[in-house]
Design a protein around this nucleic acid. Structure first.
Lengths: 154, 154
DNA sequence: CGATATTGATCAGTATGCTGACGATCAGTA
DNA sequence: TACTGATCGTCAGCATACTGATCAATATCG
């Protein structure tokens, strides 16, 4: 039987498990309570004010059904707001609040520290190579998940 | 602001997302209904008959609270059994059933196919390198998650 | 031996993620 | 314009994962 350590799927799960744990620990040390998913959503809302939920989902490769709950929690924490769109009454426009902006700014060092810690076993060169290979594998498999990454179309 | 594609945490999440989707699709095509976690647990039970749940958790780096539900479902599907341990009345000994063995055997091609598909964007050499780097990063971060990998101690 | 600490399994609660479905709305077309 | 199909957001249901707690049983040590 193949060893777990020869299975990319197992290694993927394990690495992600560590990445999430490191992220949460660093963020909590900084005095905040924000998950990796919530952070990514908030940062993307800030960079694309007024975008709708489906577009947000595409930009960070979430399933659109997952977004609902994530936004719920961002709104509940006062970091983002959901507004009715004037152009499309089905859609909700997402905007970051002032507190969301403040939180993002203050949390950034912890987030960057987390990225370093999860690569601490690798040299800088190896870390770069790992990211390159992950990007390449992800690009080839993008459409294999229900929540592919999608650019904003103009 | 840093791009998502420069964040190992984001790449980890995305790669794992694809890995799970590929696994489930291949296994379903083969006519089975088994998640990656259930597969890993079942294979580990087969390789270590009579092990208890905490040991199983350590061997595949699960949280022990997650194991309970996973085993519940394996038992419910008739693939594994939970038996009272004679040596330690707190512990449950896990064993694979004949049907579990049959399922494992028949599902193996699909599992191996899934591992290939999730690396299809990479050359064989790159795939090996990706796995090497993941193993190295994971080893360095093993104790950072609540569910570290643990060997069986004799 | 007995008090204390530890361990195995489970539970409640919360947060991703997925499938499949739904109602409301919009877009394209006959 | 009326019909058809697609899209946006949400929901119910299920399966990982985690935190923190509890109960029963075992280990350890004075």
């Amino acid at each position: 039987m193949k060893d777990n350590n020869d299975m990319p799927g197992h290694l993927a799960r394990r690495f992600q498990q560590i990445a999430v744990a490191v992220f949460l620990a660093e963020v909590e040390d900084a005095g905040f309570d924000l998950t990796p998913v919530q952070y990514a959503a908030l940062a993307t809302i800030k960079a694309n004010p007024g975008l709708d939920q489906v577009t947000l989902a595409g930009l960070i490769a979430y399933d659109r059904t997952t977004i609902t709950g994530v936004i719920d929690r961002l709104v509940q924490k006062g970091l983002a707001e959901r507004r009715a769109s004037s152009r499309d009454r089905r859609a909700r426009e997402l905007v970051i609040t002032d507190e969301g902006r403040r939180t993002l700014r203050k949390i950034t060092p912890a987030v960057e520290s987390a990225q370093r810690i999860m690569l601490r076993g690798l040299s800088a060169k190896e870390g770069e190579e790992l990211m390159r290979l992950l990007r390449k594998a992800i690009a080839a498999g993008n459409d294999l998940s229900r929540a592919p990454l999608r650019d904003i179309q103009a």
